[in-house]
């Protein structure tokens, strides 16, 4: 599991703005065409995500789907409709209890996307706060925060999750607590480094010379200059949260029946994988697609969210 954190941190480190010299060079090089390409890439990446989100919210109300909890023990592990022996009444087949995979995929998507969204927010919020504080104040605040971040990143994610869930039981709020505990540190580390570079910019000195208070400088100048990084970090964190939930549910520590998530579906499909691959493959595919889209969107947003490219 820790490799998810590691990859998130690795790509997040690159989010820190390039040194001014390099940045100016890219600004000169960037004409109109790359800007338009970037804008459309944000659109083409966010459109399918919105589509997926709308689908999982709206589709259950239409009555077209089976009840995701309705068991049919006479028809377990029915293959998807396109395979031989499949029926269109269960387009993606059924699991070992005869429950419709498509209905469960949609139902599980709601919870999974919710976890991704809220899980990102609970990690980004405190992470940004602590990171900006440390990066801007420096001194002992920075020393303390940096050590805590290091300590946090040294703890294996699964250890924290096990400790919290074993003592508190498994529920949605506890899952968010785990996501916050494990997600804030990488965010804090990145925002800290960006806040440090913004702090050293000369306009901060100029504002101080004009009599601006430190609180004002942070809220009105440092944080807005971090906005692109925060948005990008947030989208990456959505992907991480979904993966974390899947991993926990897979281990039986996350979402427990009767609630459905993609991770929980993945777990329930593992013991029948050789006979009925579709039970695990579709939620697995859904996780992959959503996380990939979200991460690409994060990258696109980072380059898009820059006043230099906003208008000319």
């Amino acid at each position: 599991m820790s490799q998810f954190d590691a990859s998130a941190t690795a790509s997040a480190v690159e989010l820190a703005p390039a040194p001014p010299g390099r940045r100016r060079a890219t600004r000169r090089a960037g004409g109109d065409r790359p800007r338009r390409a970037r804008r459309t890439s944000v659109f083409w990446l966010s459109a399918p995500l919105i589509l997926i989100a709308v689908t999982v919210v709206v589709l259950p109300w239409t009555g077209l789907l089976h009840d995701p909890h309705q068991q049919d023990l006479g028809n377990p592990l029915a293959p998807p409709a396109v395979l031989s022996g499949g029926e269109w009444s269960h387009p993606l087949g059924t699991d070992k209890l005869g429950q419709d995979v498509l209905a469960r995929l949609v139902e599980g998507g709601r919870l999974t996307l919710l976890i991704g969204l809220v899980g990102a927010l609970v990690a980004i919020g405190p992470g940004t706060l602590v990171g900006v504080l440390a990066g801007y104040c420096r001194g002992w605040v920075d020393v303390v925060v940096s050590r805590v971040i290091d300590a946090q990143l040294a703890l294996p994610f699964i250890l924290i999750a096990l400790a919290v869930i074993a003592s508190q039981g498994s529920s949605l709020p506890i899952l968010f607590l785990v996501l916050a505990l494990t997600g804030w540190a990488p965010c804090a580390r990145v925002t800290r480094s960006v806040a440090m570079t913004v702090r050293e910019r000369q306009f901060v000195l100029g504002l101080r010379a004009a009599g601006a208070s430190e609180v004002r400088i942070v809220l009105r100048h440092v944080v807005p200059n971090l906005a692109g990084t925060i948005v990008a970090l947030g989208t990456l964190q959505v992907g991480t949260a979904i993966l974390v939930e899947s991993a926990l549910s897979f281990l039986g520590l996350g979402i427990v029946p009767p609630d459905i998530s993609w991770g929980a579906m993945l777990a329930s499909g593992q013991d029948v994988l050789s006979r009925a691959w579709w039970v695990a493959a579709f939620p697995g595919l859904a996780i992959t697609v959503v996380v990939l889209l979200v991460n690409l969107l994060g990258d696109a947003l980072l380059t898009h969210h820059d006043p230099r490219k906003r208008r000319r």
Binding site: P20, R24, Q202, F203, L205, G206, H221, P224, N225, R308
Partner: peptide, 11 residues
């Protein structure tokens, strides 16, 4: 300052 662009908030 020396660097005029660094002395202005880009936003």
């Amino acid at each position: 300052f020396q660097d005029p662009h660094g002395s202005l908030d880009p936003r």
